[in-house]
Design a protein around this nucleic acid. Sequence first.
DNA 1: TTAGAATCGTTTCACTTGCAACGAATAGCC
DNA 2: GGCTATTCGTTGCAAGTGAAACGATTCTAA
Lengths: 151, 151
Amino acid sequence: MASNDFNLSDFLPYRLSVLAARMSKELSKVYGEPYGLSTPEWRVLTHVAHREKMSVREIRVSVSLDKPSVSRAVAKLEKAGLLAKSTCARDHRLLEIEVTEKGLEVFHRIAPEALAFEEAVLNAFSAQEREQLDALLTRLQDVLDAQTGTG
Amino acid sequence: MASNDFNLSDFLPYRLSVLAARMSKELSKVYGEPYGLSTPEWRVLTHVAHREKMSVREIRVSVSLDKPSVSRAVAKLEKAGLLAKSTCARDHRLLEIEVTEKGLEVFHRIAPEALAFEEAVLNAFSAQEREQLDALLTRLQDVLDAQTGTG
DNA sequence: TTAGAATCGTTTCACTTGCAACGAATAGCC
DNA sequence: GGCTATTCGTTGCAAGTGAAACGATTCTAA
C-alpha cells in the first residue's frame, strides 16, 4: 500500500512549515525582544516604512495578515509612536496610516539586521543557487495561486 | 541608506512563511474538516502510523512540535480511538504510544490524498527542478541547524 | 432623496499556543 | 540505601489568532 511509504520528513508542506517556522523564530530575535515588536507589527512597520499613506486594507494584502491582526498591530504601533493614524478626508471609512520619524528610525535600525540575517542564511548558496531558489519559490507561489484563486 | 531597499515581498523569511502558511492551509482541507484532525494531530498520527511503539518525546522530535502540543494531540487521538497509550514497563515515566487499527485505517484514507495534494503542486516542476527544490530546502535546513544548534 | 447593499476598521469570543510550573518516576552520587 | 538532580508527560495560564458580528460610512439604484 502506497501510503505506507508516507514519510513526514520528506513531505513538502511539512518541510516548508518547519523551515519557515525556524527561520521566523530566528529572525524574530532581531525585532522581538530588542524592540518589543511582534511579527505582525514588524511586517506592518516594514510595509508602512515606504512612507506612503495607506489604509488597513492596503497593508493587509501586502503583508499577508488578516484584518484583525493588522488592526491590532497598527494600534500598538501607534501607541508606541511608530506610526500615525488619521481618517481619510475623502472617505471616512478609511484610515490614512503613515510612519512617523520615530518609526522610520526604528525601522532603519532593524532592517539592516534583518537583511544581515537573510544574507547569513543565503551565504551558503552560490549566485546561481539563489536564483534557483528564488525561481522555485515564485513558482510554488504561482501554483498555489492557480489552485486556490489568488486570495 | 540600504534599508530603504527593504522589500518585504522579496524577503526570504517572509516568502517562506507565506508559502508555508498557504500550503498548510490547503493541505488541512484534506485532514481537517473531513476527519476532525488538527495539524498537530495529523502529524502525530502520521508518525505513529509506522506501527512502532514510541514515547511522546520521540514523537516530539520527529514532528517538530513542543511537548504540550504532542501531549494534547495524543490525548485527543486516543479519545478518538486512533491510537493507544500505555505506560512503559521498563520506565514508568515513559508512554508507549501505538496506532490502533482504526487509526491505521484513517491514516490510509488520508495519506493518499495528502500525497496527491503534494503531487498536484509538484506537477508544475520537472524532475530536475524537484531535485533542486529538495536540495535547496535541505541546505536551508542545514544552514539553520548550523547557526542555531540542531535544536 | 432615500432605502438597501457593500465596504471599512474594530471588537468580541472561542480556540489554539507555548512557556513555565508541577507531580511522578528514574538516575546519579555520596 | 537515601538524597539530590534529571527526565517524563500533563496542566495552568497568559498571550496570540481568526471567524463572525458590529457600528460607521459610502455606494447603488430607484
